[in-house]
Design a protein around this nucleic acid. Structure first.
Lengths: 227, 227
DNA sequence: TGTCGATCGATTGTTGACAATCCTGAAATC
DNA sequence: GATTTCAGGATTGTCAACAATCGATCGACA
């Protein structure tokens, strides 16, 4: 069993720590779209100077989690549903298909073992009804696919997308109910990876991502912003 | 070491100016993949402090133009050809199809007029054999499509992609010869936008982007890295 | 002579102060 | 009473100094 513990922020740079903290606050819903982020306030809250905070804000801006303009306040970004459905998800699909296509040889036993243990944890989370944990494990599953390809640039694009997906998800948690289907889907993916042809995998993957992400993209009942 | 001097960006913040300067140096080939970027050196060269430079470097890192690790030197990023062909270009296609799909109503006369004038300039550049200008106009054409959708996030993804495409292009300029075909292609695109159905436009667009970007992605003769 | 470890210079990370800009709101004018 | 102007505070942008870390060089020791 392997555990991904990403704690020990002690040895990270301040910039990284600030960045993670704010990022978490956003994707966990403590900071909502439109909320203001003031450098001085954050710096006092964390007892550090404004320098690292400014750099962390640049990072977050690059991730698409916040927006800022010169000499004006910086705020948490909005996420549009159409953007998620018709842009982020197709791009996400491209990323994963790319990683699958070019790293066939790297799918070894260790790799499958890791995926398998992630799925096991998903089962536990689903049984416990722990939606948040399940989502994180879902993300880990797909991130593990991407990590096959040793490209920091791919992980960079992925970060931006997945964070925005999380932001969108935060708004729709209540309707996300069929937890066990998520687990079954990923079991099927894992099984296909081990047994099926590239074409079948690609087809299954495509269907899964459109399907799965639809779970995160319910029609939020009345949110019909006409523009 | 060659020195570059840039035009007046007087009203931009220093961070923006540094960012633009370095970005241009990279996509124009003055800085090549692997070259080191030292904060102190840049700050002395530009007669400013290291603060804005550090923030600009964060921006450039987010764009995928440079890479850095803590306390280590930061260098100009590498671009892999497979990444360009099988990832960046499909994503680019998704971006444009998205913008086209959701902004049908915004394609007014002004919009077509702008596209048309871009194409006119392309003709001039093609006739002059000015490859660099042609590429920039090509980019403007497609950027104009994306700007239909009023999303800063889309432009953000686009920036990262287009800069990396430019980096890749820099390596292959010599073989890029059929300038007038580029112009004709864009004329066809413009014509289709004005006259054809959404389906036909989508099909043409898809073909064009795969086609056009192939121009930028020649098999660089012997660069067969076996991995 | 080859390997290990300490020291030093180079580079990045962090800080607190100062400068530039924006926003608010009250006073002045019509 | 409504609009404009201009202070004052709040916030972001920039700077120069200091601290932490890395890499290379040089010397000690087997």
């Amino acid at each position: 069993m392997d555990t991904f513990h990403f704690k020990s922020q002690e040895n990270l740079s301040l910039r990284q720590r600030v960045m993670n903290d704010i990022r978490n606050a956003i994707i966990q819903g403590h900071l909502k779209p439109g909320d203001k982020l003031k450098e001085l306030e954050i710096s006092q809250q964390m007892s550090i100077s404004r320098g690292p905070i400014r750099e962390a804000l640049r990072d977050l801006e690059a991730l698409g989690l916040i927006v800022s303009s010169p000499y004006r306040e910086t705020t948490v970004a909005e996420v549009r549903k159409e953007e998620v459905v018709d842009l982020l998800i197709p791009i996400r699909l491209q990323l994963e298909l790319f990683a699958l296509k070019y790293n066939l040889a790297k799918r070894d036993e260790v790799f499958f073992g890791n995926l398998s243990s992630i799925v096991e944890r998903m089962k536990v989370s689903a049984t416990n009804g722990d939606l948040f944990a399940l989502v994180e494990e879902d993300i880990q599953f797909h991130e593990h696919i991407l990590s096959l390809d040793n490209s920091s640039y791919i992980m960079q694009i992925w970060s931006g997308i997945v964070n925005r997906l999380r932001m969108h998800f935060i708004k729709n948690t209540s309707k996300f109910t069929d937890l066990h289907k998520v687990v079954e889907d990923h079991e099927a993916l894992l099984n296909a990876l081990q047994n099926d042809s590239a074409e079948k995998i690609e087809a299954l993957w495509t269907r899964h991502i459109k399907d799965e992400d639809c779970l995160l993209c319910f029609d939020d009942e009345s949110e019909q912003g006409s523009d």
